[in-house]
Amino acid sequence: MITLVLRSIIIYIIVLIAVRLMGKRQIGDMQPFELVVTFIIADLACIPMSDVSIPLVFGIIPLLTLVVLHHLLTILNKKSITFRKILNGRPIIVIDKNGINYKALQQLNMTLNDLTEGLRAVQCFNLQDVAYAIVETNGVISVLLKQNLSPATKEDLKVKTAETTLNVILINDGKIVNDNLKNLNLDVDFLNSIIKKQNTKSISDVLILTINTNGEIFYQEKHKKAQSFNVEVNL
């Protein structure tokens, strides 16, 4: 039994490394070749985990081979457009100015139900509102609404807006995020001055502290209410 436990741990670590090496993607966002590798890896990992008569290398070597193969395919995918077309297919327009492209639907093995379901998933409930619908290589349907129905932007309405800022976490669950602090050219004294003003005993009592380039701070002490305030700081 100890063997099974240790084998499971080893296989788990190797699968984790393999998946990390292949990059972060959710199942739905995967290209066909990525999906295939993920399925095979899951199956490969199970075999040597449970059957003790099979050496662990029988699971590890095919796993590593798939990682290498996947890496090579990814490189080819990046470098060659032709290869990308062969491997992933190409986006196909299923709705255009002439309406639904039935031939394209047949080519994709899609039914009208699949199409309307996909459109509803992107909050598009009326077919007549769609100017273009494209089935992407990963199966996701992208929709472009007709100009008169697309939502108005602030630019359309000529509304002046403040500059977009990014909130950066400086304290995360009582721990200082040193990398972010360094990137903003701030130091621990800056954090201590804020904490002192908020009457918090120590940094470990802070649940979260974020700051944006306008100096706006989101601050919450553990088991207390959140608060927002501004500080004068050059970022």
Binding site: L21, V57, I61, L64, T65, V67, V68, H71
Partner: peptide, 16 residues
């Protein structure tokens, strides 16, 4: 990542 991949290739070849 490329270095890791090369290392993996070397491991696979040597095991074989």
């Amino acid at each position: 990542r490329n270095i890791i991949i090369v290392c993996i290739i070397l491991i696979i070849v040597s095991v074989c």
